[in-house]
Design a protein around this nucleic acid. Structure first.
Lengths: 108, 108
DNA sequence: TTGACATGAAACCTTTTGGTGTCATATTTG
DNA sequence: CAAATATGACACCAAAAGGTTTCATGTCAA
């Protein structure tokens, strides 16, 4: 009922998660590293990472007792595509506006 | 603490609200018209419209006792811009990958 | 092997969020 | 004017979301 890209939109809805993505954009990080700058427990950050994983925005790489979180471009696709659907609309609107202006110029 | 584009991201986080935007993309509609296809009360839909307005995705035009809801491109900007920030990253990554491949080709 | 370290996970709490129902208010229309 | 319409505004509710604590588990290092 909620559609396949609900997890992606949900993942981006929280400011903490968006901040985490900004951090992971620079480099892969362990949970502890991700949690460090935030004023909340590591457990809370872990939950956010889980939501991001469900949204497909990140994947993990395990190395011994450490778990590295890695950003995944593929997760942004659904949201980008959805936005594109509306962008075509804006373009069409601008085209209409342009046409209307030209129409007016040619019929004084 | 949550940033200026939080209202926009929040507005897109709900499937009903995204569906409403799809409807309003076609034409402006009164609250009753927007509510009609949904299996929920008009009051609930009204709340969703309020959230969309807070996110800047829609504006309203009042005509007598009717209130027309109109989609507003400007509200999508923050989200599109945020996504663009990550897209530059994808491009850079692809560039790196391409460079790495060529490097390998040139050093057999 | 022992202890320190990194993470997983469950139980619990508080605040938001998505919905409903009800009533008030402003327009139309007969 | 009176009745029907279209919406606004609350109070109230259940479920979901964001956090904290606490405890269990696996891994590294001395």
């Amino acid at each position: 009922m909620s559609g396949p890209d609900q997890p992606a939109f949900r993942a981006l809805a929280d400011p903490t998660r968006r901040e985490i993505l900004r951090m992971l954009k620079m480099r892969e990080m362990t949970i502890a590293e991700v949690a460090e700058p935030f004023d909340m427990t590591r457990a809370a950050v872990k939950k956010h990472l889980t939501v991001l994983a469900q949204g497909g925005m990140i994947r993990t790489r395990m190395q011994g007792r450490e778990v590295f979180n890695i950003i995944d471009p593929e997760g942004f696709r659904p949201v980008a595509d959805w936005l594109t659907y509306f962008e075509t609309f804006w373009d069409a609107r601008l085209a209409d506006l342009k046409a209307a202006i030209e129409e007016e110029e040619h019929t004084p």
